[in-house]
Design a protein around this nucleic acid. Sequence first.
DNA 1: CGCCGAGTTGAACTGAATCAAGAAACGTGG
DNA 2: CCACGTTTCTTGATTCAGTTCAACTCGGCG
Lengths: 197, 197
Amino acid sequence: MIETITKEQIIHLISELYSPLTDVCKADFALLSEIKLYEKSTLFVKENHKADHMYFVVKGCIRAFYTKDDRTITDWFAFENEFISSVDAFFTGVPSTMSMEALEDLVVLEISREEVEKLSNAHCDFDRMGRIAITHTVLKLRRRITELQFETAQQKYDSLLAYRPDIIQRVALTHIASYLGMSLETLSRVRNPKNRI
Amino acid sequence: MIETITKEQIIHLISELYSPLTDVCKADFALLSEIKLYEKSTLFVKENHKADHMYFVVKGCIRAFYTKDDRTITDWFAFENEFISSVDAFFTGVPSTMSMEALEDLVVLEISREEVEKLSNAHCDFDRMGRIAITHTVLKLRRRITELQFETAQQKYDSLLAYRPDIIQRVALTHIASYLGMSLETLSRVRNPKNRI
DNA sequence: CGCCGAGTTGAACTGAATCAAGAAACGTGG
DNA sequence: CCACGTTTCTTGATTCAGTTCAACTCGGCG
């Protein structure tokens, strides 16, 4: 049962995946963070509200999205072992421009901005871990820009599949389409091998 | 004369703009970094080469670009008081996918990945400053994605102008066009008020 | 003065959006 | 376990924003 995983285990995993944390730091981290379960379809961050938490996905997957001209546009996905936050809200304190939704039953480790601050101040190794996690994010953001900037619908879809083959099984096409900056219909056509040149 | 600015002055500025540095840290920073001057049009980072330096722009402006199907595509601009690096090369050590060019006579503070490591290890405040600088970058990257994802050519141009009105004076339209993910001709039309609806 | 690179303008073309039906899959309650 | 409505996805026809190709303009500079 994934629900029985302990904070200590999760924090240990983070320490292994991102950057090693001392035992003192891990203990503090455990004190200041919380495991949360959200059922599939729960909207646990809402547009225009405070969103000062960082989430580490233990199990499940998250969609961050915003509304533009009455459509919802997917901005980001987070899967197992990834961090996600409503970036501007988290870092600058403004109300969130994003909502976040659990696309599957979700287990996350959740920590507030304030606690992150505390931990960063108290522990250099935590601060470093944070920086490394952000660095991962920067690399992903850059890849995404390159794709959006000059690739065709077909190329965008292929790149996404290469990078995350399981996404088709786990996420509705509508969401993938808006994430890739194309209409649902185009994505559907591009997926169909018959339509290839 | 901007060329007579000292490392100490630049580092003081960084400390003010991003996050305060202790005097010891500033001194170390000065020891491990270098002021460099590049003439307009100098290619100081080359595609497929090592690119393990971070640059802080003191004066002038930089264009980072890559080649795709025989065209050069602008990936990023950096102006005064901004940091820039060839992200993947700097953070992961692979050969650079980008080149960098001085669009104007350039003064930068330059520091290698290795020295950044050293400073981050020695000084928590440097590490924090680094994280804050990266955070700024993340916010910019996100804004750019939102623009590329679903805005029209007109909207992209307007957003860029709002955000950096001086860019038209300082950068050739071809570069701006590819940065915005559109052809030079489209940018030219979008700029012309006659073509507005 | 004439060349050259940078930007503009025009016309034809095209990839993707939109609009509009259907088909398939999904879940819920009888 | 099937029938029904709902949501998700596919397919087709049409439209449109933006690309491409080509010709032309303008400002600098040898």
